[in-house]
């Protein structure tokens, strides 16, 4: 996978393009997904997320760098050319080391919900749990009548622009600090 995060940071992506850098594979990724129609307008998506940080990110985390992850899910209608996004949901979770009690602090950006975990594994599990539940609302009602053309797309990225600037540059030059996942898609079967 390539090394640049496009969301809110396409200037950096341009820079990365200029530098023609291709980074190593990341273990922070969505492995699978399942869904559940809560009602005709709401689709609950559960993502199977693999949260294994690269050593360099663990090192950065231990040294006070706050990591921010973003999970995106989309309900798409595939056409002959291109796709229409029918509904989308994004969730961001921050992970940082809380030095006062030597715990890891997991914060959901949207509601500022904070949780402390004594180990990094617990914290990453919590992050995966927080990111892995997305609720797609305002789905057009006609969608469910033609499920064969529907696709569920998801991805997980490290929010690059949330990193400290020197780390962004370093990541842009070295490419091993960033994680980025292309969109994964699954056909949405009829329930």
């Amino acid at each position: 996978m390539s090394a640049c995060v496009l969301s809110r940071g396409w200037p950096l992506a341009l820079l990365c393009l200029l530098l023609a850098w291709t980074g190593p594979a990341s273990a922070v990724e969505v492995r699978g997904a399942n869904h559940l129609w809560l009602d005709e307008h709401t689709l609950l998506v559960r993502l199977d997320i693999d949260m294994r940080l690269p050593a360099v990110l663990e090192d950065a985390l231990a040294n006070g760098v706050t990591l921010e992850f973003e999970a995106d899910a989309r309900l798409e209608h595939s056409r002959r050319v291109g796709r229409d996004t029918l509904a989308a949901e994004t969730r961001r979770v921050q992970l940082q080391y809380f030095a006062l009690n030597r715990h890891y602090l997991v914060t959901t950006v949207a509601d500022e919900r904070m949780d402390l975990k004594p180990t990094l594994g617990d914290a990453l599990e919590l992050v995966a749990r927080r990111l892995g539940r997305l609720r797609l609302t305002d789905v057009p009602p006609s969608v469910r009548t033609s499920p064969g053309e529907l696709e569920l797309a998801a991805r997980l990225v490290l929010v690059y622009s949330a990193l400290p600037l020197p780390l962004q540059l370093d990541a842009g030059l070295r490419g091993d600090l960033t994680t980025r996942q292309e969109w994964l898609r699954w056909p949405l079967g009829e329930d």
Binding site: N63, G64, V65, F98, L100, P164, L165, L167, L169, L173
Partner: peptide
Amino acid sequence: QDAFADYREFAYLRGPMIQG
């Protein structure tokens, strides 16, 4: 705690900062 975290982060970012 914030100052300590910032200092650690600053120290950690010394290399990337110089590279930048």
